[in-house]
């Protein structure tokens, strides 16, 4: 059929940003994740949902180059290398690729920030890691970003430990976006926050993702967060992906028994 042919050419028009094939991770006898395959396009937000212990974090660590998988490939369209299996890169090349093309927002800002240096320096550090050596320029970029994430600029030189949880998380987000990455990993980015702070942060992240056209992988167990942020969902259970699809389709017409259970377990207010 001609229309499907056309559809395919459209689908192939843009190269995948990330291509994962047959990814498995075993810890001895225990399975972390099993036979995961998917593709991501630039500008897309992929949500990974599932209960704790479903393998979300193992998968995220394998995808982000922090945990070599037992089997399978993680191919990323790196700015220096093109589409390449990140575990085929030498360690320095991989680290440079991570610095240049990726961001990683941790659930706990203490894991993603340097608590001993000021918020401004935390935000400017990725630029220094990329070889920028002009203080004034970096200071300005840092101010711009803190402004963008709506941090009180008079606090720029304070240490992150004097910030509230929501402020810390906003600094962490600025730190992970200032170098214009292609892909940002987010591990429960609104996990430890008040609902009110959460909503503002979600909106901010959505706005930034849209404005910068960056792709994000968002791990969450919160279906409401997934609905608001993600274009597409992957549902994980016992290390395997049991269902994928457009976010609203997966949540409104779940097919797999586990997804149906997850969706029906969400508290309504």
């Amino acid at each position: 059929m001609t229309m499907t042919a056309h559809q395919e050419t459209i689908d192939q028009a843009d190269q995948p940003l990330l291509r994962v094939r047959g990814l498995s991770k075993h810890y001895g006898m225990i399975t972390g994740c099993r036979d995961v395959s998917f593709e991501m396009r630039p500008g897309e937000v992929l949500g990974i949902v599932g209960e704790s212990g479903s393998g979300k974090t193992t998968l995220l660590n394998c995808l982000s180059g922090r945990l070599p998988p037992s089997q399978g490939r993680v191919e990323f369209n790196a700015s220096r290398h093109g589409l390449v299996d990140i575990y085929d890169l030498s360690e320095p090349d991989r680290r440079r690729m991570q610095r240049e093309d990726w961001g990683f927002v941790h659930q706990n800002p203490r894991d993603g920030l340097r608590m001993r240096v000021s918020g401004g320096a935390n935000v400017a550090e990725p630029l220094m890691n990329l070889g920028r050596r002009h203080y004034g320029d970096m200071r300005q970029a840092s101010l711009d970003w803190l402004n963008r994430v709506e941090l009180d600029l008079s606090r720029i030189d304070d240490k992150p430990r004097t910030y509230s949880g929501g402020m810390q998380q906003r600094v962490q987000i600025a730190r992970n976006l200032i170098h214009a990455p292609r892909l940002v990993f987010m591990d429960e980015p609104t996990g430890g926050l008040d609902v009110s702070v959460q909503a503002r942060l979600l909106d901010l992240m959505r706005e930034l993702v849209r404005d910068l056209g960056l792709a994000a992988i968002l791990v969450t167990h919160d279906m409401a967060v997934a609905r608001l942020m993600a274009d597409r969902l992957m549902v994980m259970k016992s290390g395997a992906v049991v269902e994928t699809g457009l976010t609203d389709q997966v949540l409104d017409d779940p097919q797999h028994p586990y997804t149906q259970l997850l969706v029906s377990s969400v508290l309504q207010i």
Partner: peptide, 13 residues
């Protein structure tokens, strides 16, 4: 062109 919503990739939809 026509896109078959029931079979198109999520990106396409």
């Amino acid at each position: 062109a026509y896109v078959d919503i029931t079979k198109a990739s999520p990106h396409m939809v």
